[in-house]
Design a protein around this nucleic acid. Structure first.
Lengths: 372, 372
DNA sequence: CTGTTAGCGCATTCAA
DNA sequence: TTGAATGCGCTAACAG
């Protein structure tokens, strides 16, 4: 019995058939308690763990879930994966990592999904896949592979989705600047090919509108979430004639805010005295830059958790129960544990958290009160 | 034939037995070229991909490799995983992620390894596991699961290892400071429970000694790689009487260097004018802090690649060949493709790269020449 | 060179 | 409540 004990060994040692061992292992109801105990004792003694491979083959359920991640270039992928791993660790599932190479062409993404579908290794998929590519995931879902999209996507598709409430987060950030007394607030957008960029922009607009402030197109700049476009935005805004210059900037990504900070320093502008700044994402490093950056924190870890729980519940494992959560379900109606009668796709929007630090400063001028 | 075609379908369509299909798929030599072509055509037509699960079960080789990662809290895990994923993507293997929860107690790490061993899901393991815990990995290796340790470890064990040449990297950094004219160079160590902390310290000592500079214990401070201990070190060094104060600091981690920068700023000290600073790790963010941080860049991505290639070669897949590399193999003798006659464990030390930026400044005083 | 026969380790019938 | 048989999709040993 060197190596790994098999179900046969356990059956022999316990004096029962392997069928019975299997029954015990799978918590079948119809097992004599005495027999069950005897089997369990041997199982523990031998620290027997059934082979996932064989279980998968025989049962048709692989007990593996896949995670499709866009390489690891984005810092928050780590946080999402922490959440995913945590939840998966609580179950008998294992996690298979599919990563999209950075240098991959758009078509290849489709190939990867084909591959995932073709190998049928995993019985469910968590997809962190930005922008347009998410449409490929929809196809998976059609072919019967349960999938959950995390955060980003093209259009609200017909596939379960867990992500951030981008609009509300942006609304909070912009509103905070307004409450501090700012009236000329600029916004650096993310790339407009991403839905979330629009959503964040909407939040910005919403706050302005609510406060009765005009939306000045001159104060809106399209970036790409990365530092260099932050610099570009900074240079643009800071070159505006003084009276048209924004007194505050809301950047749709912390990295872009860093770029603005760099430009400000180069030009001798003080943050927050000369211009207030708020970012979006809540990267760890934002607490460490100087001045520390006020930012809208996305609940990445929680996103990973919830998405995994959702997927697991779709896989319909009775031993796993979806925890009550603080999520805002956009469709509060019954989740329909069994996929059959799911009428509308589940979409979970997680709340953001505005972390107020130095970069947005204290109230300036007379803070005017907002409409309730 | 809805769903996924099986090897039976292919066999029928091609008019051969499944054994033959299997032979073709596995590139067996003894197959009639005509037959091979015919089978391949059907395989492509049906875009048939054999089930990894079944292949594993039948062949005893799971075609899965595991990656054990210490949660994702360390920023460079991402880079390592990028390298790993890249190489795995080139093969027919898939990657299973085992992550060690942060909150896990030391014993639980052993449990995870037991779990990995017990489930026998993967046929090889890549372990990124800091410090003491690596001893558990050694056991895996004993039980016949090929494993490669990435970077950190307790003692030079008897297990294949791929990591950074910490000592030489530190040597380069310290030497650079010496060449810039510094004579009082402080060092902030990593936690001494990690071997690499000692190695980095040794590199520091080596450079001092080579330059005939005294090793002043007062200028050595034990940190823990994190920012707060960097602050502590900064406060300590900057409180020293002026003539005992270091003119340069070599921190064994970028994060600790950040802490020093923060303290310097608080005290009105200029970097690099008042004190030069070099970090270790080469985090992306180090290029973006102000002043930009000179640092010893660890080849994380390359580490991931090489470790994976090494593991794959141990798994002895003929279709995969270990690329020639720029690594310094500590044991240049034949690697012994087949595990049998491996006399000594393979240890690959990858070279670091000193990235010179603003934080260490230009030469001060009269740069004195070093012994060749 | 190729087909046939056995399993790999387990879950799931079907009888008993 | 349990045991015996059958098969998941594939590889491997054996013949032919």
């Amino acid at each position: 019995m060197a190596g790994k004990p098999t179900i046969n060994d356990i059956a022999r040692l316990a004096g029962v058939s392997k069928a019975t061992v299997s029954r015990v292992l799978n918590h079948k109801p119809d097992v004599d308690p005495t027999t069950r105990d005897r089997v369990m004792r041997i199982v523990e003694e031998q620290s027997f763990v059934p082979s996932i491979t064989a279980t998968g083959l025989a049962g048709g359920q692989s007990h593996l879930i896949g995670a499709l991640v866009p390489s690891f270039t984005w810092p928050f992928i780590s946080d999402i994966m922490r959440g995913v791993a945590e939840v998966v660790g609580l179950t008998s599932y294992e996690l298979v990592l599919y990563s999209i190479n950075d240098r991959v062409r758009e078509n290849d993404k489709s190939d990867i999904l084909d591959h995932i579908l073709a190998t049928k290794l995993t019985s469910g998929l968590l997809a962190i896949i930005p922008g347009q590519s998410s449409k490929y995931v929809t196809r998976l879902h059609k072919y019967g592979l349960p999938a959950v999209i995390i955060d980003d996507q093209d259009l609200p598709g017909d596939i379960p989705w867990v992500g951030t409430d981008h609009q509300h987060g942006s609304y909070l950030a912009t509103r905070h600047l307004i409450e501090l007394g700012h009236r000329r607030i600029a916004h650096v957008q993310g790339p407009l090919k991403y839905l979330c960029s629009h959503e964040r922009y909407q939040g910005y607009c919403q706050a302005l509108e609510e406060a009765g402030l005009p939306l000045d197109p001159q104060l809106v700049f399209e970036g790409d979430f990365m530092q260099p476009t932050g610099r570009a935005a900074g240079n643009y805004f800071f070159s505006l004639p003084p009276e048209q210059r924004p007194t505050a900037i809301f950047a749709a990504a912390d990295l872009m805010a860093y770029g603005i900070m760099a430009v400000a320093e180069e030009r001798g502008l003080q943050i927050p005295q000369d211009v207030a700044l708020i970012g979006f994402d809540g990267l760890d490093s934002s607490a460490h830059v100087r001045p520390a950056l006020t930012t809208v924190q996305q609940p990445f870890y929680e996103m990973g958790r919830q998405a995994t729980e959702l997927l697991l519940s779709m896989l319909d494992k009775p031993r796993f129960s979806l925890r009550s959560s603080d999520a805002h379900l956009s469709q509060p109606s019954g989740i329909g544990r069994n996929g059959e009668q799911r009428q509308e796709p589940i979409r979970i929007h997680l709340a953001t958290n505005l972390i107020i630090r130095e970069s947005c400063g204290s109230p300036r001028r007379v803070p005017f009160s907002l409409p309730e």
